[in-house]
């Protein structure tokens, strides 16, 4: 098991998959912050005065984490944030499904059709967090710009 988790190729694949997903997900949110703010508001989980700040900062955090994962810079911090972000998304999506809210999840494209199924996004995030956890436990530091063990 340890050998699988530490596998260099698997770790690289996880970095590319999770990092790529975070960068892709952040792109439309950065371009259309007002629409993403609306998506956050639809969840009814964040106080009103925090919504716009969250809509501005969160996508850039996703973008930076994605880049850091792929390049291997500030790697441990990026892995930790990736796990935290994915966990937040999973809780938010599961909560909307449980409450029966029909909303645009704002996951990959802000303002996408309101019928975009939250279930699809939830499953994607569950798969992604498995890879994010693998990165957290993996000791592989191959193909990283900053490859020290403490990175």
């Amino acid at each position: 098991m340890r050998r699988i988790i530490d596998n260099d190729l698997l770790t690289l694949a996880s970095r590319l998959f999770v990092g790529g997903a975070l960068i892709y997900a952040s792109y439309y949110k950065i371009i259309e912050p007002a629409t993403f703010a609306k998506s956050i508001w639809y969840y009814h989980m964040v106080p009103g005065y925090l919504i716009n700040l969250m809509a501005l900062i969160l996508p850039w955090l996703e973008m930076l984490c994605g880049l850091a994962l792929i390049l291997g810079i500030w790697y441990r911090g990026a892995v930790l944030w990736s796990n935290a972000l994915l966990l937040i998304f999973i809780v938010a999506l599961a909560s909307t499904i449980a409450r029966g809210l029909s909303i645009d999840c704002g996951c990959f494209k802000a303002g996408k059709s309101a019928t975009a199924p939250a279930w699809d996004a939830l499953w994607f995030d569950v798969v992604a967090i498995v890879f994010a956890l693998q990165m957290w436990f993996s000791r592989s530091r191959k193909w990283m710009l900053s490859s020290s063990r403490s990175n």
Binding site: P59, W74, G77, V79, N151
Partner: peptide, 17 residues
Amino acid sequence: MAFKQCVLLVVVATLVA
């Protein structure tokens, strides 16, 4: 180390945003 990098990522993300 990871916590310090987490804080740095948030600070940079906030400034850029």
